[in-house]
């Protein structure tokens, strides 16, 4: 895969002295969904804003499809659509006019058929003649997506796309994002909802306090940093962990009925076989077993904590 966005040594210090980004290097690959994950104030929006031309970087450079964001701003910006975090809209405009305006602004000739297609995909067609002020929050969010897509961009930035959006609508939006990727659009989304990254992304970058601390394939990240737990429902309760099992990392809970074994997926041997062998020797039986994998959320919390 080739990088469509290449970020080199990017730093941003705001006028007040706040350092929002610290020497970030990052390549975004063509056609992927990249999730930039981090707590509030981590620098996600600053990073996006620099690429889109809203914020001037202090140092470093960004190229998009080989073009410098400053020198080749016309070609670069034609390729990019931005859905901002805030619901900033022109209250008095109609949906149709607002989306048509965006298309013109990005230098494209009018194409009512295309705009109709976007509005239908985002379930806004019924509202096309309504003033934006009459729309609900979720509809405004979709309108911003429609505006960002109006000029047929090949790269789409979604800054906290589902903040304040209900579950049903969130699923619809994820479907829209998947369809876009299927059509070849590169998508970069920022989020502090882990499920969003877990559900959507091909790769995840974790950013905190202006530093990109890890960039990894999502599955790889979860495999590398994830822990697994084996939960055994015992046939008979135990009052304490028997000495024969002491060498295993075990926890007894649920009134002595549940035994939990935590293991590392990175380890060559999980130790499950020897645990089960030891249990059989000790005469401890179990009625059910279950394994769970730590979510991206757990990984994220661990990562951010270890950085502090």
């Amino acid at each position: 895969m080739t990088a469509i966005i290449s970020i080199k040594d990017l730093s941003k210090t705001y006028a007040g002295g706040f350092q929002a980004l610290k020497r970030v290097d990052l390549d975004i690959e063509r056609g992927e969904i990249f999730a930039l994950l981090g707590p509030n104030g981590a620098g996600k929006t600053t990073l996006i804003s620099i690429i889109c031309g809203l914020v001037n970087p202090t140092t470093g450079s960004v190229t998009v499809d080989g073009g410098d964001i400053k020198r080749d701003y016309r070609r670069v910006r034609e390729m990019i659509g931005l859905v901002p975090q805030e619901l900033t809209t022109d209250h008095f405009e109609t949906v149709w006019n607002a989306v048509s305006f965006s298309r013109g602004l990005f230098g494209k000739a009018p194409n009512p058929g295309y705009i109709e297609k976007i509005l239908r995909a985002l379930s806004l067609w019924e509202k096309k003649d309504n003033r934006i002020m009459e729309l609900s929050g979720g509809m405004k969010r979709r309108l911003l997506i429609a505006k960002a897509l109006s000029h047929e961009p090949s790269i789409l930035f979604l800054d906290e796309p589902t903040a304040g959006v209900d579950v049903e609508l969130r699923k619809d939006m994820w479907q829209v994002v998947r369809d876009l990727r299927a059509a070849g659009v590169t998508i970069i989304l920022t989020t502090h909802y882990i499920e969003e990254a877990e559900e959507m992304a091909d790769r995840v970058g974790v950013i905190t306090k202006g530093e990109l601390i890890i960039v990894e394939d999502k599955a790889e990240l979860m495999r590398k940093l994830g822990k697994k737990q084996l939960t055994l429902q015992l046939s008979a309760p135990l009052s304490e962990i028997p000495g024969a099992l002491a060498k295993h990392e075990l926890e007894l809970s649920n009134g002595g009925n549940t035994l939990t074994y935590t293991y590392d997926t990175r380890a060559g041997r999980t130790g499950i076989t020897s645990l089960l062998d030891d249990m059989r020797s000790a005469g401890i039986g179990f009625s059910d077993l279950d394994t769970t994998q730590s979510s991206l959320e757990d990984i994220f919390v661990d990562l951010v904590r270890s950085k502090k």
Binding site: G53, L54, Y73, R77, L105
Partner: peptide, 16 residues
């Protein structure tokens, strides 16, 4: 547009 924030669109557009 500066007040409402919609200026973002003009500033990110391919225009001089």
């Amino acid at each position: 547009p500066r007040f409402t924030g919609t200026i973002y669109e003009v500033l990110t557009a391919p225009i001089s």
